[in-house]
Amino acid sequence: MSAVASSEPTTPTDADEEPSTGGARALVEGLLFGVGDPIVYIGQTLRGFADVFRRTLIFILQGKIRWGEVVQQCHEIGNRSVIFIMFTLGFLGMILVFQAGFQAQRITGDLRPLGGLFLQVLLREFAPTITALMIATRVGTGIAAEIGSMVVTEQVDAMRMNAAPPVQYLIVPRFIAGTAMMIALVAIAIVVCFIAGMFTALYGFNVNPRTFVNFSFVTYADLMICMSKALAYGMAIPIVAGHTGLATHGGSAGVGWATTQSVVNCSLTVVVLDFLLSGLSYVFLSM
């Protein structure tokens, strides 16, 4: 009975049952499982994300959208994150201007381009990415916890029994709301971060706000980078968090697992997307 291959590819039981005659063989097998298991796991998870993403897009194209739920999710994802985003990004603005200011003082002594360059780096990198990491933290856990507890209380099964696909009911509204709200939050983040930086420059380094507010460095390409990053993160976080929530199994401990897994999955997704989009923008800009 136990010799039957199971549907789960990650079953180390067969290797464990091997008699431990060859120590080297056991070592090699252990190593292969150690390397292979994470790869298989990552492969399965990525396929899961792609599948949920594909089904989400199909439902949206078919127009099967519950707009009431979308509005509610916009409130949950957007409005309830505003203060958190303003607070953290405000501090980030102060930190970045401090760091840049000290270096500029030390090396060139010229603080005039500080504001312009700060705004450019903010657009290219920090505003979208740090906002996304904050949203991954706040909303990623929220979505996974909510959907996860619906899985363990069998609400998701009840949906499927009534021909209501969980992706359409639970993920599509969060996907639309997440994408729209991410763009809005990044815009707010840029403004807050820049103003916080402006005051830091004024009080820390005596840089006149009129000198600091300088848009001459910012190009159309920078705006495009910022928007494409915001868009990518906004689409990815609900998909990743939603998939992690739907993969919950096993009681209230399972909900805890899904919630913590969701932060990690969402944050890593943001970092990887950041790398890919930054790399792409570098290739385009240096062409």
């Binding site: 619906m150 363990v152 209380t153 069998e154 609400q155 099964d157 009840a158 949906m159």
Partner: peptide
């Protein structure tokens, strides 16, 4: 369902 499964 065992756990009621009422949509909250």
């Amino acid at each position: 369902f065992q756990n009621y499964a009422l949509f909250d």
